[in-house]
Write a protein that binds this DNA or RNA. Structure first.
Length: 427
DNA sequence: TACCTGTTTCCTGATT
DNA sequence: CAATCAGGAAACAGGT
């Protein structure tokens, strides 16, 4: 099967716009990775030990018939849940990760990752044998091995992993908390675990980050972010298909931020809420977290690249060159009245705004870097890799099947103009 | 009900 | 000269 898969993948035109992969490439990647114990994902801030990404490599091994290597593979590190996640969403494990390997290896890994993205059927082909191995008793319900075995003993039940947070009982909450402590190698004694003992998942969902900080001034913010992360990924990876995934539910229009990134400011900032430049300045957490809390876009003059500026603050907004439009004198310009306007289901409160949508895509490894990716993150410049797909997603979110990239980009430009007008008023 | 916000739609003109 | 981009104008729909 492996050789068949390799051959079929090699034939796919879509798969290698980067570099052709050979068996040697794959072996090199695996060699590199498996020979580095306990490396962590360095750049995506997901905080996951690298071992979390091992199911992905395991799949590569299965694909490329490296049987002798398979025997040495630390299969205990893979559990059923990871397998399910992987089947639904290979990129869940590989979204925007830098494993600290040299650039060549990382690039190869991305190429492999792209194969899975462009060929979701590969996962289905693999599933039976993959599950056979993974269903071994020793692999059941096992988390990533922890150095702290005593702490591991404390975690009496891992079933929280398979429940919605909303359904967690107080025991699940505590187990999750200990799990988080172990995963993050935090001293358990430093965390206010007793403060969480009477809470169930329903309570946690109602709490904002300030509530968490109140409970635990030292780690509350991180725990809150970890919970948001858990809620989003465990929900979306298990319940939603990769290509039809819709993370922007009407009642859950905020995506969980990456752990380590500010979240509260995203949820509360609205451009029109605040009258002057101060409204566009970020909180400290915003500055640390992402390039923009202000939803200011400016397009970059790179034809057919679809790069866009996601501008951090009003001070960096570039004023557009005034465009002199000639009056044609042939009647009014613009859009004529539409007879069946009611057919368009416009945005509701829960659908979120365009800048939130773009931000969420950038934060979501399901879409970054497949559909959209940072070009120069420090400058707030990103690129639409598949602009039509992004437009389609936006259309889905707005329940507008006629959405196009042209319209989406117009909305983005219009958003920028509004910001510039506000800036001029303030001067 | 009027107004505001944030698009959405359609268009023209500029640029590549 | 066609394709693409930028932006004007106004419609549209939800919220206040």
């Amino acid at each position: 099967m492996a050789s068949k898969s390799l051959r079929s993948m090699g034939d796919r035109e879509s798969l290698n716009n980067k570099a052709k992969l050979t068996d040697e490439d794959i072996v090199m990647v695996i060699d590199q990775v498996l020979n580095i114990p306990h490396i962590h994902c360095l750049s995506c801030a997901c905080g996951h030990p690298f071992m979390y990404h091992l199911p992905f490599l395991y799949m590569i091994l299965k694909l490329y018939k490296s049987d002798e290597r398979l025997q040495n593979f630390p299969s205990k590190m893979i559990n059923q849940q990871d397998t399910e996640n992987l089947m639904y969403s290979p990129q869940y494990f590989m979204g925007d990760h830098n494993f600290g390997l040299d650039d060549t290896i990382t690039e190869r890994m991305y190429s492999i990752h792209d194969m899975f993205q462009s060929s979701p059927g590969l996962c289905e082909d693999l599933e039976p044998s993959f599950n056979h191995t993974l269903n071994a008793p020793s692999a059941d319900n096992q988390l990533t091995p922890l150095d702290d075995l005593d702490l591991r003993d404390i975690i009496s039940d891992m079933s929280f992993k398979y429940k919605n947070v909303y359904d967690w009982n107080p025991s699940d909450v505590i187990n999750w908390l200990y799990w988080w402590i172990a995963e993050n190698k935090v001293e358990a004694i430093d965390v206010n675990v007793p403060g969480f003992t009477s809470l169930c998942g329903r309570d946690l969902e109602k709490m904002d980050n300030y509530d968490f900080i109140r409970l635990d001034p030292q780690y509350g913010q991180r725990i809150y972010e970890a919970l948001q992360y858990f809620m989003f990924y465990h929900h979306s990876a298990r319940n939603e298909n990769v290509m039809s995934v819709r993370p922007f539910h009407q009642d859950q229009h905020q995506l969980a931020p990456w752990p380590g990134q500010g979240s509260e400011s995203w949820q509360h900032i609205r451009c029109h809420d605040i009258p002057g430049p101060s409204s566009y300045s970020c909180t400290d957490s915003d500055r640390e977290s992402t390039s923009s809390a202000t939803s200011c876009f400016s397009t970059v003059n790179e034809k057919q690249v679809n790069s866009v500026h996601f501008i951090p603050s009003i001070t960096s907004v570039q004023k557009p060159i005034p465009m002199v439009m000639k009056k044609t004198g042939t009647g009014r310009r613009g859009r004529p009245p539409k007879k069946d306007a009611k057919s368009r289901n416009r945005q509701g409160k829960g659908h979120g705004k365009l800048w939130e949508f773009i931000r969420d895509l950038l934060l979501n490894p399901l879409y970054n870097p497949t559909y959209i990716r940072w070009e120069r993150r420090e400058e707030g410049i990103f690129k639409f890799v598949q602009s039509d797909k992004v437009a389609k997603l936006w259309g889905e979110r707005k329940q507008n099947t006629s959405m196009t990239y042209e319209k989406l980009s117009r909305a983005m430009r219009y958003g920028l103009l509004r910001v510039v007008r506000v800036a001029k008023l303030w001067q």
